[in-house]
């Protein structure tokens, strides 16, 4: 662990909604080039933890550090520009724009050309080409001109991933990327996440329910329960540990 600062770190990260503590003093560091799975039962605070990291929610206490610098007070757009890329659990697209446009908006955000109001967006072939490449990676190229709202649920999930690819972030945050996908679609996304991981310098945070997915992809697993971090370690060890068996899988182990 010694040496360079972790690429992302949360220190005593806490958020309260009224009297309810949704994320409770979570301290965790994420090393560059690793894939960490975040597991826990429904309502454990996984998505809320994600929202605190990517800036959709502001912490009540604690800090988020990106490459050693605190970003706790930055808004979501600023964090996105610093390299935190987020894909959402609930489909979160631009419904009446077409598929290509959805991705092109992400390419454009990355390229920083959003304030250009004099050139024709349709003539920026460079932006469109990059968007098309991202669509090809999730096998959505042939649906490029359909409106996002017209896509099947599985295709919308793929589009969500394509948007994240187009942002070219340092840190990929996937929130149950394969939820609701058909069996034959799931491998496309898993292979893609594996490919991102194999690039070596990308850091991936993955909220996932399916244990086989976690075992296949994760270098490390952390467990959230009632907003607190209750286990952290190698996938095999964490999944087998009594606290996970009880907290996550709901199996009561003998004392």
């Amino acid at each position: 662990m010694a040496g360079a600062a972790p690429i992302l770190e949360t220190r005593d990260l806490t958020i309260r909604f009224g009297g309810h503590v949704a994320v409770d003093g979570v301290s965790c560091a994420f090393e560059r080039g690793t894939l960490t799975a975040i597991v826990g039962p429904n309502g454990a605070g996984k998505t809320t933890y994600f929202n605190l990291i990517s800036g959709q929610l502001r912490a009540s206490a604690g800090a988020v550090l990106l490459k050693g610098a605190p970003i706790t007070r930055l808004a979501a757009p600023a964090r996105a520009r610093l390299g935190l890329g987020r894909a959402f659990q609930l489909t979160n697209l631009f419904p009446n724009l077409n598929v290509l446009e959805n991705v092109r908006l992400a390419v454009q955000a990355r390229a920083g050309t959003g304030l250009d109001f004099l050139s024709m967006a349709a003539r920026r072939r460079d932006l469109a080409a990059r968007a098309e490449a991202c669509l090809a990676r999730v096998r959505l190229a042939e649906r490029a001109h359909a409106s996002a709202a017209a896509l099947s649920h599985g295709d919308q999930r793929k589009l969500e991933v394509a948007i994240l690819l187009a942002l070219e972030p340092d840190i990929f945050m996937f929130d149950e990327p394969t939820a609701g996908m058909s069996v034959d679609e799931v491998p496309v996304i898993l292979d893609l996440i594996e490919a991102i991981k194999r690039e070596g310098d990308k850091t991936v945070l993955l909220v996932e329910h399916k244990m086989d997915v976690v075992r296949r992809l994760a270098d490390r697993v952390i467990v959230l329960h009632n907003g607190a971090l209750v286990a952290d370690g190698e996938p095999a060890a964490v999944v087998a540990s009594p606290i996970v068996q009880e907290a996550y899988l709901g199996i009561r182990t003998a004392p």
Binding site: A78, A80, P95, L97, L105, Q108, F117, A121
Partner: peptide
């Protein structure tokens, strides 16, 4: 119809998502 105009449409469609993209 410029890149700027596309961002405006993105805001109309889903402002939350536009922010998450960094706008």
């Amino acid at each position: 119809n410029s890149p700027f105009g596309r961002v405006l449409q993105a805001i109309r469609e889903n402002e939350f998502r536009a922010e998450a993209l960094g706008y």
